[in-house]
Design a binder for these strands. Structure first.
Lengths: 341, 341
DNA sequence: GTGAAAGCGCTAACAT
DNA sequence: ATGTTAGCGCTTTCAC
């Protein structure tokens, strides 16, 4: 097959070790030898076999990023950012999607394919804390996203409560009083929307109003279709909302679609705020006001944390689990502004 | 570190080879031995070290998929489909994005990280045929997407000319005569839009009209912003178009955004057709008529071809390069239909 | 049917 | 500064 260290050594008339030294930029090599070896490398077109190197070093240089769904632009955008951040550490990213199934999330967190990877960045939505209690044989892991866990792992998430609060406050500021929340789940208090829902409650309470829990609409998933359906259900009520805060942009966009179909105007009749700042939000027929997490920072922090965990794995005292909060901004667009002429 | 074959062998009181036989479902093992070994495996929690296995076999079980941009939902959706298709062959996908840079596309095609992967699925947009002439040391590769190459590789692409033709014919059918094309590039005849542009010309000619080349608008990239800008430029002309066929959905969506801003109605004033059928197209304020490639088939075919190439690599006569055309459909939505009440 | 030993390509000790 | 050797964990002849 390929050219090996030995072939190069033979050609250059030196030992394998010397070639290895050259390849790895080991300092103590005479310039002459280095040149000779380098020439042999070039002539033979030698390229190190990473598999062998990894077997030896116990590292693969590959990390896994597992997100619920690549079809959701938010996760696709985050994935792109993670790939770039990983490249800065000379790491390659193995991308997996869990389809938002707890079963697959457990599988991944428990070290599925763990022998191929040095570490794991997991963005869970259905996983529960108990699934994380025991992870024998599983590689270092960093959590990403808005679900909270009672488990000793680094967790990168923006301040969801604060972000949601500022989104809802914005709606209150423009005079809305009947503000619905779209995208809750029924079953669990620890649901993904948990924190954003809390922000919704806090903002409303802080304004001296009483949160109307009947204005909290549940959805099956977190897609445009879910938002469209939930919005439709909400509109069938007598006292319809005058504003909507959605769990994410996709739900918000689906909701807007329903509003247009029903002949309602955004934002005049109903103002809409989303969460994620996916690119699509800027280019809809009515651009969407949204909470924009700093995705580049998010990705970079996750990778940095993971790299650190990998470095100390098995070594000295690992740092205690951190919760890191990257920044975010509320981006006001047409869906909450006076409409263009 | 982990538990190795040797540990299991010791525990079960057999040789390494026997354990290996059990792990690999080698037929000639007595049920008794098998049971004993299996028990040792379970007790010790043994999991094979893939790196070592791969070093030995010269295979890694990992393939790379390189797309221009994950932020483009089309590629994100295709990536998801490829991951699923690969899983059916027990392959893992390493995802890379080239940012649409020829330099990065060349790098990837030339076997960047080739020692970690068994094969490569590349979806190029800037790459030229000459970049593909020599690929020493590079792994089996399958091409994906609408650029044509004079190079001996399997290529999975839908019939772009035919698809474009049917899209434009649809616009003609609903009575449009001044049909613009959005998303060409200036420099190269072999540009990505090449085939779709040809379809545009053919359909117009077939209708007995003369293609108006001044109606072909170039864009820098293939994003919403590019579509918005190109549309704006087109509208500044005196004889504005009454329909637009865009290179992809993102450009079409950007164009629609501009139309709305200018107070033009879709489809009454200007009808719009896109290409890709990304999910967003179904949920815009005006849903988008578009060409829908069969993404699942596309992904499955690409993976299947690659698997076959990997299987015969270095072995017997490889099959001659194939060009495979998965199906597509024209999906008619509001952007070319009578508007809802 | 099972075992012993060689070796995939590399790096880390230990020599020199 | 460079060479020698062992071994990472596995599969694969080739014996028995």
């Amino acid at each position: 097959m390929g050219v090996s260290l030995k072939d190069v050594a033979l050609r250059a008339g030196v030992s394998v070790k010397t070639v290895s030294n050259v390849v790895n930029d080991y300092p103590h090599v005479t310039p002459g030898t280095r040149r000779r070896v380098q020439q042999a490398i070039d002539e033979l077109g030698y390229r190190p076999n990473l598999t062998a190197r990894h077997l030896r070093k116990g590292r693969t240089g590959i990390i896994t990023l597992a997100v619920p769904e690549l079809g959701n632009p938010y996760f696709a955008e985050v994935a792109g950012a993670v790939i770039d951040a990983a490249a800065r550490h000379e790491l390659t990213v193995l991308l997996d999607h869990t389809a938002g199934l707890r079963e697959k999330e457990v599988l991944v967190s428990q070290g599925f394919r763990s022998h191929v990877i040095d570490g794991l960045i997991l963005s869970p939505i259905r996983l529960e804390s108990e699934d994380l209690l025991s992870r024998p044989e599983a590689p270092p892991m960093v959590l990403l996203g808005e679900r909270e866990y009672d488990a000793p792992y680094d967790h990168i998430m923006i301040d969801n409560v604060g972000a949601a609060r500022s989104a809802v406050r914005h709606l209150l500021d423009i005079g809305r009083r009947r503000i619905a929340f779209l995208g809750a789940r029924r079953e669990s208090a620890r649901q993904p929307a948990h924190l954003r829902l809390r922000g919704w409650r806090e903002a409303i309470t802080a304004a001296g109003l009483a949160p109307d829990e009947s204005m909290v609409a549940a959805t099956e998933g977190y897609d445009r279709a879910d938002g469209a359906a939930a919005m439709a259900a909400l509109l069938d009520r007598e006292d319809r909302p005058d504003a909507v805060f959605a769990y994410n942009d996709l739900i918000a966009l689906g909701a807007m679609r329903t509003l247009v179909e029903r002949g309602l105007r955004v934002p005049e009749d109903i103002a809409v705020v989303g969460f994620d700042d996916i690119e699509e939000s800027r280019f809809g027929m009515v651009s969407l006001t949204t909470v924009a997490p700093d995705k580049a920072a998010l990705a970079q922090l996750a990778v940095d944390c993971l790299v650190e965990r990998i470095a100390v794995a098995g070594g000295s005292e690992p740092p205690s689990p951190r919760r890191i909060l990257p920044g975010y901004r509320l981006i006001v667009r047409e869906s909450t502004s006076v409409r263009r002429s």
